[in-house]
Amino acid sequence: MASSSDTPPLLFDRALLRQRRTRAARGYEEFAFLASRAADDLADRLMAVNRTFERALVIGGAGAVGRAIAARPELASKIGTLIEADISPAMAAKASGAALVMDEERLPIADESVDLVLSCLSLHWTNDLVGALIQINRALKPDGFFACAMLGGATLTELRQSLMAAEDEIYGQVSARVSPFADTVDLAGLLARAGFAMPVSDVDRVTVRYGNAFVLMRDLRRMGETSVLASRPRTPVHRQFFVKTAQIYSERFAEADGRIPAKFEILHAAGWAPHESQPKPLRPGSAKVRLADALGVKEMGAGEKAG
């Protein structure tokens, strides 16, 4: 039996996440600019993959990935069956084709049953990211392709700081009110830990300007991206708290025209399910050409100084 130390900490309330996404489903398209941007980027990256995919699974995005693929006929012709999934039934229903309600923490997909998995702004809410990636890897056929977009560590830093400062000033304490996100430097390493071959990652930074913090918080609510931290404060706060948050946000971060920036960091990563045909790194010491010769420079021994 696994010990408690083997169990990942419960960071997020997944039942609450489902409720929040269901609440946001009505009118979601008006506030889905981040999901649409991430979906377009995923589709553009997939265009560069010279491969056809018999069966593809999309996790998250509320139909945005399906629409991005359909808008690229060349890409759409490379994909046979496309299934779009979400933890919220109302969000899954936004798929243009086949839809599936599921929780990526307990992926209900048979091993080696899909050729392609795409995840759009979903994995940052998983309690065990590596565990979810391992399940995705198992679901892929050998040499299957995986790509994801998720929110990264620099997302909403201004809001995070303003909330903390307001709470400290009013209540004399600080609570976690904005989700912790993964760092871009870790994401390729996490894919490697999950067994993916040739993992890569990069980052897309987006700044959205708002009239005030209240409009920003409204947009986050309508996106279904408000905090679902399991350790979130449960005591209701007075409206004064949010007024103070908006005041601090404006004082610290407002630009010359009075508008405030909200920074979002979208992490992209991709990798392949292992297959024997994939390139393998050479064994240490097996090189047949000296680095100095390849660079056209003189080789120097240890301790020698350059002239």
Score class of each variant (00 low, 15 high):
Asp6Leu: 14
Phe12Lys: 07
Arg20Leu: 03
Ala25Arg: 00
Phe31Glu: 01
Ala35Ser: 10
Arg37His: 12
Met47Phe: 12
Glu54Thr: 06
Arg55Tyr: 06
Ala56Gly: 13
Ala56Asn: 10
Ala71Ser: 07
Gly80Met: 09
Leu82His: 05
Ala93Asn: 04
Met102Ser: 08
Leu107Gln: 11
Pro108Ala: 03
Ser113Tyr: 14
Ser122Glu: 03
Thr126His: 02
Leu129Cys: 01
Ala132Ile: 07
Leu133Gly: 08
Ala139Leu: 07
Phe145Tyr: 15
Cys148Thr: 05
Ala149His: 03
Thr155Arg: 13
Gln161Trp: 07
Leu163Trp: 05
Met164Phe: 10
Asp168Trp: 12
Tyr171Thr: 03
Gly172Ala: 08
Ala176Trp: 10
Ser179Ile: 06
Asp186Cys: 09
Leu187Ile: 06
Leu190Asp: 02
Phe196His: 00
Met198Pro: 09
Val200His: 03
Val203His: 06
Val208Leu: 15
Arg209Cys: 09
Arg221Phe: 02
Arg222Glu: 02
Thr226Ala: 04
Thr226Lys: 05
Ser227Arg: 01
Ser227Lys: 04
Val228Arg: 01
Leu229Ala: 04
Arg239Pro: 01
Phe242Asp: 05
Ile248Met: 08
Tyr249Arg: 14
Tyr249His: 11
Lys263His: 12
Glu265Val: 06
His268Asn: 08
Ala269Asn: 10
Leu282Asn: 11
Arg283Val: 11
Pro284Ser: 13
Arg290Thr: 09
Asp293Arg: 15
Lys298Gln: 07
